[in-house]
Design a protein around this nucleic acid. Structure first.
Lengths: 117, 117
DNA sequence: CCGATGTGCAACTATCAGATTGCACTAAAT
DNA sequence: ATTTAGTGCAATCTGATAGTTGCACATCGG
């Protein structure tokens, strides 16, 4: 299994980078709680400028975690679960793979050292 | 639901930061494939210096994703699935929560605009 | 029309992470 | 004992990124 090449790898990469920042996670929490919000409203709830929020939203958008739609003069952002779900599945698969490998290694080691038991 | 406070949040944060870097993901792939490896041997397989590898391994170690044990003059690193699994579950729960909220919002919106039916 | 509100764009700063190099120290091997 | 291989520590460089401010542009309400 190789996780860097092919298919959903780029998607996962973007999600991981996006989620690595605490401010962006807070942003996602606020968005999920309110269902919808604009950069200006979100900036009122966080200790950073509106422009900082805009940049974070751009990163989240590029990662597929949020989407924004224009309504008149404001842009309303919403959360998108799909990319997050894909990343969660990727991680779960990776953890399962590690478990499998470690189990195999353990079996081999026990077979090679029968003096233990 | 708040994801920043309490319990496994710090664990998840460390894992996300650790996995956000592509070199570290490669490192984890190599470690998972070989079962065990030292910083020196890993540096031979990646286009970065041993010291860079050492720093990455320190980050991964702090995140609970790998662990190293000294054997004579060398330090052998192994992968640890637990923290990764915890992060995967956190993400899956978050995605499910978003789905739930979006479904609720959709229901409310449909109830408020019956002229569509 | 005109003021108020919300966005978008650009320049700039500063901090931090990834990476390098050099050297000292420890442990194995001959 | 001397050489060789593996680690650890420290200083340094560089690029990316989080954050800021200022201003121009669009839009809604009176």
């Amino acid at each position: 299994m190789t996780y860097e090449r092919g298919g959903a790898a780029e998607t996962v990469d973007g999600v991981l980078v996006a989620l690595a920042d605490p401010t962006r996670r807070q942003l996602l929490d606020l968005l999920a709680a309110q269902g919808m919000a604009t950069a200006t409203t979100l900036a009122e709830r966080l200790p950073v400028s509106r422009q900082a929020i805009v940049k974070h939203l751009a990163v989240l958008d590029a990662a597929g975690l949020v989407t924004g739609s224009r309504v008149g003069r404001e842009v309303r952002y919403t959360v998108r679960p799909a990319a997050l779900d894909a990343a969660a599945r990727w991680m779960a698969a990776l953890a399962a793979d590690w478990d499998r490998r470690l189990a195999t290694i353990k079996r081999v080691a026990e077979a090679a050292e029968p003096e233990q038991g």
